[in-house]
Design a protein around this nucleic acid. Sequence first.
DNA 1: TGACAAAAACGACCTAGGTAGTATTACTTC
DNA 2: GAAGTAATACTACCTAGGTCGTTTTTGTCA
Lengths: 128, 128
Amino acid sequence: MNSTTHRLGDLQLRILQSLWARPNASVADVHSELKPERNLAYTTVATMLRKMEARGLVTHHEEGRTFFYRANVAAEEVNRSVGNHLVERLFEGSLSSAVHHLLSTREVSNAELDQLEILIKEARQRTK
Amino acid sequence: MNSTTHRLGDLQLRILQSLWARPNASVADVHSELKPERNLAYTTVATMLRKMEARGLVTHHEEGRTFFYRANVAAEEVNRSVGNHLVERLFEGSLSSAVHHLLSTREVSNAELDQLEILIKEARQRTK
DNA sequence: TGACAAAAACGACCTAGGTAGTATTACTTC
DNA sequence: GAAGTAATACTACCTAGGTCGTTTTTGTCA
């Protein structure tokens, strides 16, 4: 894949998320999906999709005169890449200090804490 | 503070980190600190510091003809802001899915897992 | 005091994201 | 077949990070 999956703009990320949820979407599809949160012009979405295709982030195929886009990078890949990049540049690679900051400044429900403990147990199993 | 503490460039973040570790540093100080990892021109650092001051990220005071800079935003603040922003935009605010991704794709030592469990216990105490 | 060096100021340029208007093309429908 | 509509294509512009080169100022020291 592209080595620069981290460093995606906000709009690019939202478009990718839209495509992950609804693969093979036309410009109109993406545009109307994003309409409520960002009141963008149709051409803004179209232009961004074209730019993203040039960067290899999405691909398209044509049906009649309409382009249908799909993501060319996996959600897992992007999330991992962006997440790791953040931990690296902010916390020198220390996952625990990253989580520490998150935990100490966010409201975290008990259910989420339960979930986290399960994840830790699973991680222990894996490294055993 | 500034509402845009998230969205800092890599260089800006590194400069801030340098200033957090060594407050009241001259351009030469920051430049030589960053020298090993990034072979930047002196003026690059100076220019970036000036731009950062214009954005309110750092301040300076003069001693003789030399500027001494210090960070105008706290490390805690920036880390929290950047971290939260990431969790929001990548995982819709779910801390556990963020941590899940991190845990599932990184090598995490047992010591770090221990540390995480302690953090969770502390968080539970706090919300009780 | 005159040369040198160090420091800041300024301006220039490139890249990339983001946003959108205008032009062109082509399909549909009366 | 002409008008209207819905697509894409193209171009332009703004902002911000990042990177330096050149110029100006000023202090130091032989």
